[in-house]
Amino acid sequence: MAGFLPKSGAESTGYRGLVGPLLLPTWVMVGVFLVIPVALMAIYSFLTKEFRGGVIWDFTLAAYDQFFFNRGLFGDEPPSIEWTYIAIFWRSVWQAGVATLLCLAVGFPTAWFIATRPAAQRGVWLFLVTVPYWVNLLIRTVSLKFLLRDNGPLNGSLMSLGLIDGPLPLVNTDLAVQLGLFYSYLPFMVLPIYAAVERYNFALSEAAADLYASRWVTLREIVLPVVRPGIVAGCILVFVPSLGAFLAPDLLGGAKTFMIGSLIDEQFKGSQGNWPFGAAVSMILMTLVMIVLILYARAQAKAERRS
């Protein structure tokens, strides 16, 4: 067996010459309907807004200026930092961060528990965890809102049990949005951690226990560092979509919990919209996400080189 030689499935199955035609549809679809649109969006963020939505082809930095600087009502005052939008971004990062930590706190024990079941049972547990993800996100969010309402089943049962006197104000709070995000993306946390724990060599834990480490010290000193790639992957998978989420903040939050998704959405609605500003906010969001993804890819490449 020529083990060290490059495997040349291409040569032997005869698809090498067909690579171009086979990939053409993908290139065309994603290239024309995603890459070009994103490039166009970048251009639009430097155009002048038209009042009934749309743009005028005059290049300007107005959209970014509006995002970062306050020049007074008539635009003639000396610029100061505009905190409104930065605060919305900050709140989005905060909400997504809290949701990520919530997912981690629940997702890690769940993933661990599933990965330590007998092999035959794992599939069923994983299936149970993933099924809700495939249920329409809108429906899940609406369901959560229904459950959390002031006169909804949760408050109702708490009151009839006499645990609380009046309804807890759950909807339209930061907590509701965090719960909504947590609920939306929890499986994204469980799956990569599960994959990492499944590959974990439990002899390491036994060795630690043999060397007098307690269960929890072993968890902190041995398990967490070893399965860290899975944890990091899970956090990214929850944090990134949470950052730009629209449904959870829109349906479960109120005016005080306004997030990036809603800010962008507003710019494209009817005559109130501002397309260049919406494009600029989208660009800033995408840049933020790309930075996170690139940092992650770098860290992963570094970890791979080390091992």
Binding site: M1, A2, G3, F4, L5, S8, E11, S12
Partner: peptide, 18 residues
């Protein structure tokens, strides 16, 4: 032994390798 080229030669006769 492994990697001596015997399988490669066989696959060349069969037509799986150029």
């Amino acid at each position: 032994p492994s990697g001596c080229g015997k399988t490669t030669l066989l696959r060349m006769i069969a037509g799986f390798e150029d």
